[in-house]
Design a protein around this nucleic acid. Sequence first.
DNA 1: GCGTAAGGAAGGATCGGCAGACCTTTTGGA
DNA 2: TCCAAAAGGTCTGCCGATCCTTCCTTACGC
Lengths: 256, 256
Amino acid sequence: MSTAHHDRPAVDVDAASSLDTVFAPVHSQTAFEETVDRLGTAIKLGLLAPGTRLPAERELCTKLEIARSTLRQALVALAQSGHLRATRGRGGGTFVADPQPPAAPPSAEVLAGWRDVCDQRMMIEVGIAVLTAERASGTAIEGLERIVLAIDGLLEDFPAYRRADIRFHVGLAEATGSSRLVTAMTETQGAMSELISHIAHPPEVLDSANDQHRRLLSAVRRRDEAAAAREMTEHLRGTEHVLAGLLPHWSSASQP
Amino acid sequence: MSTAHHDRPAVDVDAASSLDTVFAPVHSQTAFEETVDRLGTAIKLGLLAPGTRLPAERELCTKLEIARSTLRQALVALAQSGHLRATRGRGGGTFVADPQPPAAPPSAEVLAGWRDVCDQRMMIEVGIAVLTAERASGTAIEGLERIVLAIDGLLEDFPAYRRADIRFHVGLAEATGSSRLVTAMTETQGAMSELISHIAHPPEVLDSANDQHRRLLSAVRRRDEAAAAREMTEHLRGTEHVLAGLLPHWSSASQP
DNA sequence: GCGTAAGGAAGGATCGGCAGACCTTTTGGA
DNA sequence: TCCAAAAGGTCTGCCGATCCTTCCTTACGC
């Protein structure tokens, strides 16, 4: 619980004046970009499993409240990158590709900002752990327990492990009943996946991570919010340390 | 720490399937909207104090990476709503209006979504409290202590209290050293202000809230992350209960 | 083979945003 | 005193994103 094992320098309050964030660049996402992002993330996280059929275009563009031409731009982009396959005619549709294309290695920008991503993840996941401990229903907890049990059988297969891991973490967010938190969690998991998917994860590490899932869930069952926060902190600190070890060159190069 | 005092029903894991959030409407903010939002929030939160001079238009649009015409749209909008005043000529500029216009009462939509806002705030603030306890520097903690001391003298003047309260919470985010967290905090505080600013706050309530600030800060000083999470949870639960008491009509009307 | 349900493609209208030049009002200093 | 500099205010033309609408093409089932 001390900072001794933490290799980041202490932060001065003046280093990041809030005015810098007020006057930071405005980056407005277009509807096309956000659609590609949302669908792409959902596919890469396995929320939309391979083989799943998407709603028909005319239906989906109504749900998303965008024009069909805009939606099609996004679908075409995801089809070209190999994440979707479209078949025409009655009974056709747009399907999540099976198998999925291999994930691209993380870009330099993503690597440069990995600490920021980890910070954001820490904030979101710890907050959600506390809220889950406060109000998760019994059935929600049972569902999470089933996921933890399933993960025990996936320690040798990292892609499958990771998909179940995502289900667990998103499940925590769902158990709070707030759709905003689910969105925040999926976005964060998407950002983490870009960092995580390309590094080696020995089964022992995954096993101990799932032990942490178990302890977290036990804290949730006891409604012990402080313990939930502590377990989640420990859990995330694990991957943070792995990343810090594997990406040493980037740890201090991003400060101007 | 139990759920007995919590008036919200337990949440089922199927109630908010993650697919609903994937296919939720896409609302792309325009550069104009985001600029109005950012500057307006900063002004309303007091991050830009009345009388402050903004950077010149030609300079500001460079920082924000938008065209001057777009920036001007935003500035004109904020001037028309009375938040900014512009004077021409050499030595002129755009200034934060002094005094500020009275805050508008919260809209029906904002009131309908107040639980969601509180959930988001809980997630963000608890996560930030933990991160702050992990890594705040000594000078950052001293700055926060000064704010807490200053608040003791403002218990009779709610607007001043609230501004200092915001400085405290944003200061926690700044102490983590992550600009993303500062942004998340300011957005959340902006949303909360819409709810909070129009309800009565007796000095005793503010006093006990500042006691919670003090205990939180003590936990941060001890690097006790679990205690920081607990204190923050308690602190936020306070305002949540006040809102639950004052807005009873809206507590169950938003579920479809 | 015909209707229907799906993806695919093309037109024109609208709007937001950008770039740049230009105008008007002040005021500090040569 | 006067003028150049520094600020906000205005105008025009252009581009790209998005929208709506209509039509085409493919495939399945009756």
